[in-house]
Amino acid sequence: MPAQNQPAQNGSDPAQEKRLSAQEKAIHKQLVQSALLAFTALIAICAVGIAWFVNNSRVSGNGVEVQSSGAPFELASAGDVGQYPPSADVVGDKDTTALTTPPTPLYTTSGANTLVTWMVNGTSSLNNAAGSTKKLQPGSSGSITFYVLPKTAALGTLKFTLGLTPYQVSKNDTDAGRVQIADKIYAAPLDSTDTTSAAVYSLLQGHLLFFKNYNKATQTYSGWVDGSFTQSFTGKPVGTAVSITLYWVWPLQFTNYLYTGTGNLFATANDDFTALVTNNMNNAHERYFHANTGTLTLPNIDPSMDATAIKTCTGYYNAADELLGNSIRYLQLELTATEQ
């Protein structure tokens, strides 16, 4: 007799058993499919990998050269010598292709050296050009020139920032930012967190002024540079050098700011006068005046000031000059250019 109706095993339902095995089969099928896919991918990767490794025999490493893929501009200067180059300074790459008229060798920045020494000469430096001494003091003035070399036709506007850092003679090895000026002479920047030194940093902004233009006939200035200025280089061809000259002055006395005309800062009470004297001197007086003792009580500064007010301001201005002269032995000027 054939065994047809076998008794159920373990109390399980034969119908449920059939469903389970159907699910199991579906999962099993998915797994197999995924596994196959993964395996195929693995084979492909291995194949590519091996092919690359095999090709490696034709790759020889001679040393890697990294070339800066085109900064849009470089800065340069022309001159005989770098002045007091701090030990970290680097003389830029010498470029003797005729970029200037007359042709002058230029020392340029590059991708490898983005901050280089500003080469100076008799007509372009931060040394005093008015008078017998080269050192800076109230009444000093001069001009300093630099060049912008566009490296791409798409160069737009550049922003130039001027940074002045006062240095004092340094006797301790541990002074922060110490640089060697000459044999056995070291200098370190003033600590800007110290109250008096902070005053010196501020006063430098107001006593050492930079201008874009100078009128030799009237000895007056225009185009005041208040820390930074922008200039457009659109249309300047690649391979040329655009020269920019900054005229700097340390005015001798307060009345050089207040009075206008020949020998003073400004020829007339123009926009520059308004910006510097009327606005800046009144609103940022820590850049111009210093009180040796007590607090600074300034009268309002405008052309109609009376003699007593002028005398008060002159006293504060001269005290500031004296503080600057006593606190600073070396002065660093750093020009930074960035694309706008």
Binding site: L115, V116, N326, Y330, L331, Q332, L335, T336
Partner: peptide, 18 residues
Amino acid sequence: AWFYNQRGLRTMTEVEAP
């Protein structure tokens, strides 16, 4: 990339004592 495109020149001078 922005830092990469910054360039600078630096010089120093001496200041007279009063």
